[in-house]
Design a protein around this nucleic acid. Structure first.
Lengths: 338, 338
DNA sequence: ATTAACGGTGCAACCGGTTGTACAACCGCG
DNA sequence: CGCGGTTGTACAACCGGTTGCACCGTTAAT
């Protein structure tokens, strides 16, 4: 049996069926004010009848848009998928785009080969816009995008804002998040605070710490600031380190919920009750936060909303909007660990 | 400051710079045998000089291909990302496509809205081919794809093979995997086997069980077959269930490595040694397999290779190849739990 | 010397839409 | 009755490539 590859109906066939010209058919389907209601109705009926759907390729060439947005990621796919932070952010982007007719393509850029490939696609004008999920200063690809004039949204603050006047930026206000967490500690009357942050060179970590300090001052001494990785094991170790010093503390600010989970485990093992003896506050509002015992008070980073915002800004820029910078607000999620 | 949106050079400019016609320029860049070496060299030099890169939209329209392949997934993005099985398969696809100039788009189809959107894109001919990661019988989208004649690759066997003559299929031979696991048990001299599978309605589960039975016969009695979920907790519970029956057993065949991890924990808690008292074999060769104590003997499903294969078949079908069915082979990974 | 064969190139059509502009039909007006 | 102004439609160009076919000049065969 031969395949029933019904070749798709073109605008010309619709026009013929409706007894009008191609241009009139096009305008009628695009609801141009220059076409009479009568004709529009006839053309629409004809289109329905022959099952017409405008061909993406033809349309793309005519209007100069592919209706595709690239999401540029530096991480390899496996890491990208295993990190729930990314997955929620990406969901936000696709969710928002699904309201429009736009599609998103995940474009990896971890190896040189991948970066060259990405560059090639940029030069071909395969995409109407690019959302860079983890931009870094001095990236050659950003340079290319700038030269090509491709609308670009950076997710995350670049120190020195080297592209501020060309690209849009979306980021969460980490300093504000630090404020919220620290204020909660203060309100609860905690006076001897320990901070178990992530890696020292991470800009988010720096901003959060600034937020903590602005509120707590002397209640968070330098000696109590510990830089680690993001995992529960890191939190666990950090607490052991603190306990070994045999100094009193009544609150722990954590750089991630996973760190906090490890912190709580270590405290419990040491016979310290949370929150009776020690208060713990996390960061991220990761799924794990609700599964901690006690459930973790944490700072929510609006990742999904950030994705929405990034997508919307990209769409606006495609329509010609100027680059903007958009700061998302953190939120304290009150649970039982404080 | 105005943006430096250098408008991209077109073929016409290259042709002018090389002193030839547009058609000759096109043929020269596409290495047509009808053009002399001399001319090709001149055109290539001109192209390099003006930084010419063929425009994706124009090309797509002319050649009738978008150079985009859609990966259709039924799961919501969050699940997709959290399941390492998918992530490896998807990596395989993008890895293979990155050798070509093709891009892949992840197209979700869990809600009705998403399915309508997918359908619309299919009708617009936005994609040259579709890879359906989790096809199910009676899917309306498959029906649409068949009608439209879009090259499609199904990942997983559909019972009754309703589309065999139209779509290609790639799947791992689960029955063979069952064979391998069971044979290993037999070789080790295990006679009283328990099977802790996944959900009863899962086709992979059915096939694996068939493989087990063909080898073990009476050594795997019906009463010893337990259907559960895929997680470690399920394996843990299943063993407790078996232990409660107070019947002897010396081997456990597991439907996933996560199940096996739970099984091993339960056995150890019950004072049974693995592999001295009881042998355990998993399935998937998940990362967790190497972290079990003892390290888990398991059946490896070549997910990455399956992704490669799916991508290649899709590319071949785009070039006009007939639909094929491709079966990937399982492999027993010997570790210490047997 | 005439012609067939052939390699190399350009013209023009085409892919499937959108859009600037010309034009025809109709209106009301002086 | 002829005019300008509206309204609705069609013609044709255009987006940026690819490709069938005609045509040119050259060489070899008759």
């Amino acid at each position: 049996m031969t395949q029933p590859v019904r070749t798709a109906p073109t605008l010309a066939e619709v026009a013929a069926a409706a007894g009008v010209s191609r241009s009139t058919a096009s305008r009628a389907l695009n609801d141009s004010p220059r076409i009479s209601e009568e004709t529009k109705k006839r053309v629409r009926a004809a289109a329905k009848k022959v099952n017409f759907v405008p061909n993406a390729r033809g349309r793309a060439l005519a209007v100069g848009r592919t209706e595709i947005i690239a999401v540029l990621v530096t991480e390899p796919l496996s890491e990208l998928f295993s990190d729930p932070t990314y997955s929620e952010f990406l969901s936000g982007i696709t969710e928002e785009l699904s309201e429009s007719s736009y599609l998103s393509v995940i474009l990896q850029a971890s190896s040189t080969h991948e970066r060259n490939r990405a560059r090639e696609h940029f030069e071909r004008r395969s995409f109407d816009a690019v959302i860079d999920v983890s931009p870094y200063k001095g990236s050659e690809l950003l340079e290319v995008l700038r030269e090509l004039g491709v609308p670009t949204v950076l997710c995350g603050q670049l120190e020195g804002h080297p592209y501020r006047d060309v690209f849009s930026t979306v980021y969460s206000d980490d300093e504000e998040g630090g404020h919220f967490a620290a204020l909660a500690m203060k309100k609860r009357g905690r006076k001897d605070i320990v901070a178990v942050l992530g890696p020292q060179d991470n800009p988010a970590v720096v901003d959060r710490l600034r937020g903590y300090r602005a509120v707590l001052g002397e209640d968070l001494p330098d000696a109590n600031v510990i830089y680690t990785g993001w995992n529960s094991g890191d939190g666990y170790q950090a607490i052991h380190q603190i306990l070994a010093r045999e100094m009193a503390f009544d609150g722990v600010l954590c750089g991630s919920d996973r760190i906090a989970a490890g912190v709580i485990t270590a405290l419990n093992e040491a016979g310290l009750s949370v929150p009776a003896d020690v208060s713990v506050v996390g960061f991220d509002d990761h799924e794990i936060a609700t599964r901690c015992v006690p459930a973790l008070t944490t700072v929510r980073q609006p990742l999904r909303e950030e994705g929405h915002m990034a997508a919307n800004i990209a769409l606006d820029m495609i329509k010609g909007a100027e680059p903007t910078t958009s700061v998302m607000h953190m939120q304290l999620i009150q649970r039982d660990s404080l």
